[in-house]
Nucleic acid binder design. Structure first.
Length: 427
RNA sequence: AGAGGGAUGGCUGAGCGGUUUAAAGCGGCGGUCUUGAAAACCGUUGACUGUAACAGGUCCGGGGGUUCGAAUCCCUCUCCCUCUGCCA
């Protein structure tokens, strides 16, 4: 969430940013927020005065009791009952204001970076890069099959078996399908390690605090699977556990920047979507993903965002997949992000662009909730910036690899992965 | 899962109702001394809130209570350790 102090000091900037994010009537929202903030601070000042008086009386009573002046001490207790009542009333008021302020802040999205284009939705996203092999979109010869037919033809992924043991959206990977996915995971992890990331294997269930820390809660509660008996959530992305490692941490200067990578299954309930665009591997309840997470000083985060985008682009190049990079517009960018670049690969049989990665800079938006800080050169405690990106999400990469590389002989895999799979064709 | 013991500042650890505005040690930072370093000695050493700046307020695992006053007493939750049991 945004810092209240920032909003107080940058009211116009905040309102401008919220307009770009297509928030309705931000003037009213910010006015209400600041009015409540004023009331809160007045109340706190008043309560603190009452507490200060109570504290000093208690000390005096302590002194008198010690000196054996019991009667004088008793006399002083009279005032305290009044103070106590007042203090209780003011504290309740203060708690109420604070709860309301927090609720209001939870509803306010992050402000977009200046490079984020204006726009209402997906159609206004800006294509900032098109890979060489996507300049002319590949056209497949003969009767190309979409991946949901290819997986049946070669018997490498079975949705029906998944339905039998779990439900829709839980595919079973078999034989070369399973081996290809495992190979890709290893490839992605090795690449990240080469780029200086530290591999993390986090738990894939998290507690409520972690859900709040990275912003899945309170709003997106319905998106996560919840284990009622233990009060735990299945993670929707490795971002949640890996970023929450640093919740309530003041990071040492020499440990910055933090670069972590983790492979986990991801679980998403994603209720209510139907049709061809969610067929096959396009949208699942459980899927595998390798995620990169960085934590940087504020002045470094945009340079880091670029580096992370370059890194993801490099992997797609090695996989020889046609892709484009979109800079999401104000209306389409996620609630938490200040800047987000989506990577989409072209899946030639579906003739569709599939989102395979999303690289975001959250600036201090997550760090503020996480209380993730460092000491700047003046010794002052400051919020850090958090960033993350998929590198990469497996199912859609798999879909594109299968579709784009199909031939009459079988699916010919890109060279880079042969050493990982131990085979070069699925037939 | 049963029984018992714990949770205090970056770490170790005292405090068990009123100079605790948390002792002491270690570590960190600054200084004296030194050609430099070590040792020794001296000083310093958290977070949040609040203010123009002070002041003030909050924080001893979380929440609630008793009291004029709680790190200290009571209730409750969470987590950790030891023993027993179970187990990949």
């Amino acid at each position: 969430m945004l810092q209240l102090s920032f909003i107080r000091e940058n009211k116009e900037l905040t309102i401008k940013g919220l307009h770009k994010k297509r928030v309705k009537n931000p003037e009213q929202i910010i006015d209400d927020l600041l009015a409540l903030d004023n009331k809160r601070r007045e109340t706190q000042t008043e309560r603190d005065g009452v507490l200060a008086r109570s504290n000093s009386i208690s000390k005096e009573i302590g002194g008198l009791m010690k000196a054996g002046k019991k009667e004088e001490a008793e006399a002083m207790k009279a005032e305290t009952s009044l103070l106590k009542a007042k203090e209780k009333e003011l504290t309740e008021l203060l708690n109420d204001y604070e709860a309301k302020l927090t609720q209001m802040l939870y509803q306010i999205p992050n402000l977009p970076h200046e490079t984020v284009p204006e726009g209402a939705g997906a159609e206004d996203n800006e294509v900032v890069f098109l890979s060489q092999n996507a300049q002319n979109l590949p056209v497949l010869e003969g009767n190309p099959l979409p991946h949901w037919d290819l997986i049946k033809k070669y018997d490498i992924i079975d949705f029906d078996l998944g339905v039998k043991i779990s439900g829709a959206g839980f595919p079973v990977y078999k034989g070369k399908g399973a081996r290809l996915q495992r190979a890709l995971v290893n490839f992605f992890l090795d690449e990240a390690i080469k780029a200086g990331y530290t591999e993390i294997q986090p738990p894939i269930v998290v507690n409520e605090d972690s859900g709040y820390g990275t912003g899945q809660l309170p709003d997106k509660e319905g998106q996560m699977y919840f284990i009622n008996a233990d009060g735990l959530y299945l993670i929707p992305t490795a971002e949640v556990p890996i970023t929450n490692l640093y919740r309530d941490v003041i990071v040492k200067d020499e440990d910055l920047p933090i670069k972590n990578v983790g492979f986990t299954p991801c679980f998403r309930r994603e209720a209510g979507s139907w049709g061809a665009h969610v067929r096959g591997l396009n949208r699942l309840h459980q899927f595998d993903k390798v995620e990169i997470v960085q934590i940087t000083k504020p002045e470094d985060s945009y340079k880091t965002h670029q580096a992370m985008c370059d890194y993801v682009a490099g992997i797609l190049d090695k996989l020889e997949l046609p892709y484009r990079i979109l800079r999401l517009c104000g209306g389409d960018i996620s609630f938490n992000a200040a800047l987000c670049h989506d990577f989409e690969v072209y899946s030639a049989a579906q003739q569709r662009w599939l989102e395979v990665s999303s690289v975001s800079n959250f600036e201090t938006f997550q760090a503020n909730r996480l209380k993730l800080r460092y000491k700047d050169e003046n010794g002052k405690t400051q919020l850090l910036h958090t960033l993350n990106g998929s590198a990469l999400a497996l199912p859609r990469i798999l879909a594109a690899l299968l579709e784009n590389n199909q031939t009459n002989e079988g699916i010919k895999l890109p060279k880079i992965i042969h050493a990982y799979t131990g085979f070069d064709i699925i037939n």
